[in-house]
């Protein structure tokens, strides 16, 4: 995308930052399993000023939470720009479109289109799923809403169309790995203006992926934000390596996390006092943040990466030290 052209698609802060060529920073905010607005306000306060926009998850991991658009409205009121996440799991094309009309009317301008985690992983595993469309088809649909002023049916808007900067997700390390750059290109062809990737811990493998993405010129047609996230413990690192599909955690990262807890090595949790446990957790978390900072610094140098998406769900406090440590603070002024 041309950075000289000021003819913005939607003129959101995220779009302006990306188009100006700044290395963008987005964050993530998980709404509560309650109707409590204070939770959102508190999290927004931790992120404000440190990210250009914040993703509001949509019933993440298929657990019922405050709606993305509802929480996004609260986030907007706090002076932070939301990226609404919308999954295909819970809504058919009617519901998605009508919710997007509402989201636009409430001032939201960034959207991340996702297929959505299967409900079997969440707290309502016996629910019927929808999956009327997949994320690629949602991208096409919202691109047509914005660019052609039509609904998915082909009917024209009566009045203001719903316009969003359209995002999509990418899983660089999921199988079949050789297909991933092609699938990314397909999402961009469908209309994705920005991409947020699954968590990257293996910079070497991510560089290989980006090389293939560059070979397809995909990075010139969209803004790619690499997903990063701070580790809380060596156990979390091992769990991600062994149990989460599409996440590569190199041994050296696990080793760094282990080392951070060396002082307490060989001791079971039951043998530690609560002070010791707290101290160990603090040491791990500090190292997790430092690893994240180091990752961002390396990722920033990869050609074709337009920013980072920091996923620190239920640990929003970590975003400030990460952004500062990576030299990404202060965030650019909006012009």
């Amino acid at each position: 995308m041309s950075s000289k052209d000021n003819d913005y698609l939607v003129g959101s802060r995220l779009e302006k930052v990306l188009r100006a060529g700044h290395f963008a920073v987005t964050g993530e905010l998980g709404p509560p399993q309650s109707a409590d607005p204070e939770v959102i306000r508190e999290k927004a306060a931790l992120l404000k000023g440190y990210v250009d926009a914040v993703n509001i998850t949509d019933n993440q991991t298929a657990i019922v939470r405050m709606s993305s658009i509802g929480a996004g409205t609260l986030v907007l009121q706090e002076g932070l720009e939301p990226v609404i996440q919308m999954t295909c799991r819970d809504r058919n094309r009617l519901a998605i479109q009508s919710d997007l009309l509402g989201a636009h009317a409430l001032g939201m301008r960034n959207l991340l289109c996702l297929t959505g985690d299967h409900q079997i992983f969440g707290n309502h595993p016996t629910a019927k799923n929808v999956y009327d469309m997949d994320s690629l088809q949602m991208v096409q649909m919202v691109a047509d809403m914005r660019d052609k002023g039509i609904f998915q049916s082909g009917d024209e808007f009566k009045g203001t169309p719903a316009s969003f900067l359209i995002g999509a997700a990418a899983a660089p390390f999921a199988d079949p790995i050789e297909f991933r750059p092609l699938r990314l290109a397909k999402k961009v062809k469908a209309g994705a203006n920005f991409i947020q990737t699954q968590l990257v811990y293996d910079v070497k493998e991510f560089s290989k992926y980006m090389k293939k993405v560059r070979d397809l010129d995909t990075h010139k047609e969209t803004f790619i934000l690499a997903g990063v996230g701070p580790l809380k413990s060596p156990g979390m690192a091992r769990y991600m390596k062994n149990n989460v599909p599409g996440i590569l955690v190199p041994d050296e990262v696990i080793e760094r996390m282990n080392k951070a807890g060396n002082k307490w090595a060989g001791k079971k949790a039951a043998d530690l006092s609560s002070e010791e446990k707290k101290a160990r957790s603090k040491a791990w978390k500090e190292e997790g943040i430092q690893i994240c900072i180091d990752l961002i610094k390396k990722i920033k140098k990869i050609d074709g990466v337009a920013g980072v998406h920091i996923m620190a769900i239920e640990w929003e406090e970590a975003v400030k030290p990460i952004v500062e440590g990576a030299g990404l603070y202060p965030r650019p002024e909006e012009k």
Partner: peptide, 12 residues
């Protein structure tokens, strides 16, 4: 109570 759709196609 609502039906268990997990044993239908919805569960995979």
């Amino acid at each position: 109570t609502p039906k268990n759709w997990q044993v239908s196609r919805d569960g995979g």
